[in-house]
Design a protein around this nucleic acid. Structure first.
Lengths: 113, 113
DNA sequence: CTAATATGCAACCATTCGGTTGCATATCTT
DNA sequence: AAGATATGCAACCGAATGGTTGCATATTAG
């Protein structure tokens, strides 16, 4: 199933995003791309302690999660952050917080009754 | 290193939180706990399609990431969401978004100059 | 007391993951 | 054209993951 045809909002889809962020190398890539985009695979590899191939794989994971987009420019592959996808992850966390808050309110009301 | 003594804010620490959320079974546990806490392992297992042992392991992962806290009540282990930890994850995403926004502003300023 | 319930511990298994190395290919640069 | 640079592809490897089953133990209910 492609990202486009895949139904939105299942736990799996959301989990894939979080899983992509759930590795320190990838998280550091996301941070770099949030400060400067686009960046090539080589420049992303420079300043990392792993191989270019490892970085390539990580970028692929981020891309599959929709957190990052790639475009070819000559011999370089340039990666940019997809801010929308980061926002989607944030919204997921917001939902959890909201449900928690309202659960607390219900509990409080129940205790006071 | 215990969660308390571990230095805050490294990519690894943040990544561990996201990694804990990066599994659909665990994400669904977090969702349930955000609506109703505390819940026992048994009740969390009911309504899931995996074994109690699997759930136990997942809860342990969530607990190690600080997203959830356990307490014993008689023969039951009761798990609650730790809202602070969810908030911390949200803050991490906010930081990424903010850096992205300011990078965009810098780019815009540069182009207009 | 006895049976049922709730959990813990440990071993085991297949798959995924993060990483490497080696080689091929495409695109500049000179 | 030739060399340097940037990337892609594939095989391989050890460790971590997600899951199971079997058995032991503790607590509560009848």
């Amino acid at each position: 199933m492609s990202p486009a045809t895949r139904k939105r909002g299942t736990f799996r889809d959301r989990a894939i995003r979080f899983a992509a962020l759930g590795d320190d190398t990838r998280l550091s890539l996301v941070h770099r791309l949030s400060r400067e985009s686009p960046l090539s695979i080589s420049s992303l590899t420079a300043g990392s302690d792993v191989t270019r191939q490892a970085i390539t794989k990580h970028l692929r994971v981020l891309e599959d999660a929709g957190l990052v987009r790639a475009s070819r420019a000559g011999r370089e592959s340039l990666y940019s952050l997809d801010a929308k996808s980061v926002e989607r992850a944030r919204i997921d966390l917001d939902e959890i917080s909201r449900q928690w808050d309202s659960a607390l309110l219900r509990l409080k009301a129940h205790v006071e009754k």
